[in-house]
């Protein structure tokens, strides 16, 4: 199994297309960082103006923590596409190349092969998120410095003390890892049914877009199914940045306003991962490999 995993990772990281995702993320983050470095003040003024008032703050509002939050809000919507590029190619790509036949004549069970492939896709996903975290958080901290984190919500501001921020990002990235692994699992499942990777990639993204639209529609007919859709839970990494408050409306450092919500969402996503991968293995074990 370990040998299979090593070989799958070797194959992933020897393909030029793998590094497109890493390059894209780096380019987008650098672009945002340059923009905010040059014109961050205007951005903050605009955000304050949307709240309909004025705010005087001492210190560095446009610090690395805020820059990272801005980047995550923009990028985590697009990362599923980059994850899908690899995950949805895991089986269909091999079928397309014709190498699946040869792989399956080796002395490993189909379940072992599938688990190795999914684990490799998960490792790729995690590495993509580590890369994202490195550029979005660590580089931003270096370039913009650190200070208290001001978050501009739709009708209020959240202020998190500087020494209370970093662990929240760690939690958010862990949650994002589960979200992205769910996307990888869906792409992986669809790749079992196809013999080229275009179909599963397009199908995975279509399903995510479709379900996202469904989960944002406030129509009673669809409200009942929303809690069961994995996309409903994917953005709950933001919950790490809401704090509990005292009766005097003062934030409690080190607290999370709705930890059960985060845990519930993580649970729902993990169940989806197990379902998607389990179904993929079940189908693949029965599949006649003709390509």
């Amino acid at each position: 199994m370990w040998k299979l995993l090593q070989i799958e990772l070797y194959k992933i990281f020897r393909r030029p297309r793998t590094f497109i995702a890493f390059g894209t993320i780096a380019a987008l983050i650098i672009m945002v960082q340059v923009g905010l470095k040059v014109d961050g003040k205007s951005y903050v003024e605009f955000m304050i103006s949307t709240l309909g008032g004025s705010l005087d703050v001492d210190g560095n509002i446009m610090n690395g923590y805020l820059v990272c939050y801005v980047i995550l809000q923009m990028l985590l919507v697009n990362v599923p596409l980059l994850v899908t590029l690899i995950a949805a190619d895991m089986i269909s790509g091999e079928a397309n190349m014709g190498t699946l036949r040869l792989l399956l004549t080796k002395p490993y069970s189909r379940t072992q092969l599938m688990l190795a492939k999914f684990t490799a896709a998960t490792v790729y996903t995690l590495m993509l998120l580590v890369w994202l975290a490195f550029f979005a958080l660590l580089v931003s901290m270096l370039v913009f410095g650190t200070d208290d984190l001001f978050l501009f919500k739709s009708s209020y501001i959240v202020l998190i003390k500087e020494n209370d921020v970093f662990w929240r990002y760690c939690g958010a990235f862990c949650f994002a890892a589960i979200s992205m692994t769910t996307v990888a699992a869906l792409g992986f499942l669809l790749s079992v049914f196809a013999e080229n990777s275009i179909g599963p990639i397009v199908a995975t993204m279509s399903i995510i877009v479709f379900l996202t639209i469904l989960s944002t529609m406030n129509i009673p007919l669809y409200s009942a199914i929303k809690p069961y859709l994995f996309v409903t839970h994917m953005n709950n990494w933001k919950e790490f940045f809401d704090q509990k408050v005292t009766a005097a409306n003062e934030a409690i450092p080190g607290s999370i306003q709705n930890l059960p919500k985060i845990l519930h969402s993580a649970g729902v996503l993990l169940v989806h991962i197990v379902l998607f991968v389990g179904t993929a293995i079940f189908v693949f074990r029965k599949k006649d490999v003709l390509s």
């Binding site: 030029p16 190349m97 014709g98 190498t99 036949r101 040869l102 004549t105």
Partner: peptide, 11 residues
């Protein structure tokens, strides 16, 4: 085994 076309990893 060699099964029809001997497809391998082109990259």
């Amino acid at each position: 085994a060699v099964i029809e076309k001997p497809d391998v990893y082109k990259y």
